[in-house]
């Protein structure tokens, strides 16, 4: 069972919900893996406090030009859709930070002067915390292209019964990379006009990919009912509503589990999981 947690924007409590659900499932004795795919700003570790046991590099292939073979013909540059390789005077320069590793340049080089070499753009950490298997991808500072790290995370071989995938915020490529191939997507939102707008974008995205989905409304009591109205009109399942509670908010701002201050949440997150499991299997 692979469940992705996504949100049209940051700051909706997506990671809080993902980690709390993972822990609730683990406390029921299930084998659960949490994967933090928000590689530009992973913060699941704040809640799960994992002990990291292994770490490896996430790499991409970038072209390297052998100037002894190169005739400066410019075919590589003409083939590159991303302007990431250019013939400049007597040399060919590669701009790794905007290279998309498509291999187009080495395919067209008539002299076979281009070889692809790995370049590290981030790393992946693996460990466990609070009974949950933990993986996190982290993009190195200054890197602009995150999907390869997300891809590496999603290719991980985990044999856990339940996989909780914490997607990056937004609706762009890295999000699609994170959620594709999952069984169900939980869209976390807040009932504000901005929240609703982002929710609409997120719903459009999952519908386009064609993944089953439902909504969790966080801070559900601050709104004016427009979000619920939208969900009803669109036939979207509201899986859970979480009212604002000061002591809970304070707990998670300290990186604590919601169920540590309000034990009801352990049951509520377990039920959230069960209701999704039921939808997926039916």
């Amino acid at each position: 069972m692979k469940i992705a947690i996504a949100s049209g924007k940051g700051g909706t409590g997506k990671t809080t919900i993902a980690t709390n659900m993972a822990v609730a499932i683990a406390r029921e004795g299930r084998d659960v893996t949490y994967i933090d795919c928000d590689v530009e700003e992973p913060n699941g570790h704040i809640f799960l406090k994992p002990k990291i046991r292994e770490q490896y590099d996430a790499t991409v292939l970038v072209p390297h030009v052998d100037l002894n073979k190169c005739t400066l013909c410019g075919d590589c540059s003409a083939a590159c859709e991303f302007n990431a390789i250019a013939v400049l005077g007597k040399t060919v320069e590669v701009f790794p930070s905007i290279c998309h590793s498509c291999g187009g340049c080495s395919d067209v080089c008539p002299e076979n002067a281009i070889v692809d070499i790995p370049r590290t753009i981030g790393h992946i950490s693996h460990g466990d915390g609070m009974g949950v298997q933990f993986y996190e991808g982290r993009l190195n500072v200054g890197e602009a292209i995150s999907p390869p790290v997300t891809k590496a995370l999603r290719r991980l071989d985990t044999d856990s019964e339940v996989l909780i995938i914490d997607a990056p915020p937004g609706t762009s490529c890295p999000v699609i990379e994170a959620i594709s191939g999952t069984d169900y997507v939980i869209l976390v939102t807040e009932p504000t006009p901005f929240g609703l707008n982002d929710l609409k974008l997120a719903v459009g995205m999952v519908q386009e990919i064609g993944l089953p989905h439902g909504v969790v409304i966080n801070r559900s009591d601050i709104g004016d009912g427009k979000t619920e109205e939208f969900c009803h009109r669109q036939n979207l399942d509201i899986l859970m509503t979480i009212p604002f509670e000061r002591r809970v908010a304070e707990a998670y701002s300290r990186g604590e589990m919601m169920s540590d201050v309000n034990s009801e949440y352990e049951r509520r997150f377990w039920e959230l999981y069960c209701s999704i499991a039921e939808k997926v299997s039916s």
Binding site: G74, N83, A86, V87, L88
Partner: peptide, 19 residues
């Protein structure tokens, strides 16, 4: 300019004049 590319206009401009 390569119209599809969101980035790297300056790189291509440099290549255009380096030629």
């Amino acid at each position: 300019q390569n119209v599809n590319a969101a980035q790297g206009a300056g790189i291509q401009a440099a290549e255009n004049i380096a030629k």
